[in-house]
Design a binder for these strands. Structure first.
Lengths: 326, 326
DNA sequence: TTGAAAGCGCTAACAT
DNA sequence: ATGTTAGCGCTTTCAA
């Protein structure tokens, strides 16, 4: 089957390829009769412009890549939805690359998109340091960092400040009388984990109840929770802080299996990725992240950055909110 | 900044562009010295092949589109993960288009990809009938349908047979003594909803306890659950069947809010998208879908279909499993 | 083993 | 208002 091109359309309509191009792109005045003939011809032949050829010629792809650590995490799938809808408003498509929180996969993904496939990149990096991607990042591509920052990185970033909310949450636990407060971290290398842990450390020290042995190192995924939870419970913690949404839900499942009632037997402070009710998180104090807003901001920012690649760096941060259990 | 192309690399290495192309594609024998010089030149210039130009020339994009109804649904994000990893093995990338279970967005997505952007398409369609997309689908593109089938569609399909498992689940409820068994459907137009409802209807009629007034029409999303659940409870149902994973979790949340204990006060039969424990579904009988396998099969099938576009249609179906509450 | 050159389908500058 | 045509960066045929 001979692929139909602009050539065939032009021929059948008795015009030049330029005229056809003008019409499908609405770029120039064309007489109504000509337009009609061409549109007729397009329809009859079932012509569809070849987007690749077009991109090749113009250099514009109308495609943004989102490199994301974990698609299955509701926090990130929410981000995807929001970003996609912002981009759609300017006719950009979104391409998802899933790194599964793996450095190598992130490098591979960056490599993929550094070959001119996309107009811009949104990156929720799993790296611990900017130097790890600096050399492989194409120098010229518009890129913004979302959720996690990399120290020393000169690109735009959109993040959520959880420091204050975390502090408030832990102060609240202490006010309720807890002093042995266990803590399960996310993946240690990422900025969000560090920020939250810093808040915990500061508050605990301020009250003179800091005890490093009550900190457990997690990985932001569910499978790290069980062991850590058990060991914190064994250490006699009366309250436990769990620092992301996935781990928080998993913790509830584990507790329930053990016959422990969160909110009664043990106080919990968890994280949540939206204000919408989420099953399993009813019995916790919560730090709620404005995830939708985060996604919208990121979408708008990459649009802005693509429109003006040489504008000065912007670092935008919005606040999470502490919501005590009612 | 002058973009670096194959031209510059060739010049600096003192060879032709053809030779550079041979080297970066490993397509021909090249003398070791030449290779060395060229590789040196590539490194020094930081050259990266322009993937768009390459696709334009060869017609190969190494890209597959997955048109998916709801990214935030764990069933589909699991599918995405699995498909992506199968495709990665043959160096294909996956592009996600999210339709939010909306016909117009599905049409838009199909339109996008019918302009030569991808080598193949995996479609979890939200349409009710093949005729709704027939005309807009490009005739020549490799495409497979996943999860949901469209009557009369000549393309490959990979689906999960839930009929038997659903029947078993309802038989089980009846064996436990229930006769007023409420039922909340998914989105009515899609094949999975129809199949499951057919199973329910058949079993209930077989036992002479079918009552159409116990059926509520849902939309496969969470927000449809509350009202429907309330009204079924008001109708005096002692057991309730909820026919997808999202709605099942939501139902638990609602019940808990009302102080009703599922598994004690009301028997529930839900759906679940993996064998992995999921919070909130402990107290239900479950129909478990082999979601990962579904994704893997789909990945392999699109690969196969792209390799041989003219092979005869294949319709693959795997079985869901009924797992009574323990 | 290497090079010259055509051409993939389209856009847009320039000419008419 | 419409047409002519160069050329985007690469692959690949054919020749040397």
């Amino acid at each position: 089957m001979g692929r139909i091109g602009i050539q065939e359309v032009a021929q059948r309509a008795g015009v030049s390829t330029a005229t056809v191009s003008y019409i499908i792109n609405n770029k120039k005045q064309v007489s109504p009769e000509t337009r009609k003939r061409v549109e007729q011809s397009i329809k009859e032949l079932g012509y569809r412009p070849n987007e690749i050829a077009r991109s090749f010629k113009t250099g514009k792809k109308n495609l943004v890549a989102f490199i994301v650590p974990d698609i299955a995490n509701n926090f990130f799938s929410t981000l995807i939805e929001e970003i996609e809808s912002v981009l759609a408003s300017e006719n950009y498509k979104l391409m998802i690359l899933n790194t599964k929180e793996t450095k190598q996969r992130e490098l591979d993904s960056i490599n993929t998109i550094s070959r001119g496939m996309v107009d811009g990149v949104i990156l929720a990096s799993t790296m611990g340091d900017y130097s790890e991607i600096k050399d492989v990042l194409p120098p010229s591509i518009p890129i913004i960092f979302i959720d996690r920052e990399l120290p020393g990185c000169p690109s735009d970033s959109i993040t959520v400040n959880c420091y204050d909310a975390t502090s408030a949450g832990i102060e609240n636990l202490i006010a309720k009388g807890h002093s042995r407060i266990g803590y399960i971290t996310g993946l240690p290398r990422i900025s969000t984990t560090i920020e939250r842990l810093n808040a915990y450390t500061a508050v605990m020290k301020k009250h003179g109840i800091y005890d490093a042995s009550l900190i457990r190192i997690g990985d932001s995924m569910s499978h790290c929770v069980k062991t850590n939870l058990d060991s914190l419970l064994d250490s006699g913690c009366s309250a436990i802080v769990i620092t992301n949404n996935v781990m928080a839900t998993e913790a509830m499942l584990q507790m329930l299996d053990k016959g422990i009632l969160p909110g009664r037997d043990v106080d919990m402070l968890g994280f949540k990725d939206s204000f919408q009710a989420q099953y399993g998180l009813q019995h916790m104090d919560l730090i709620v992240q404005p995830t939708q807003e985060l996604g919208q901001l990121a979408g708008r920012q990459i649009l802005k950055r693509m429109a003006d690649p040489s504008a000065p760096q912007e670092r935008i941060s919005i606040n999470a909110e502490f919501v005590p259990r009612r």
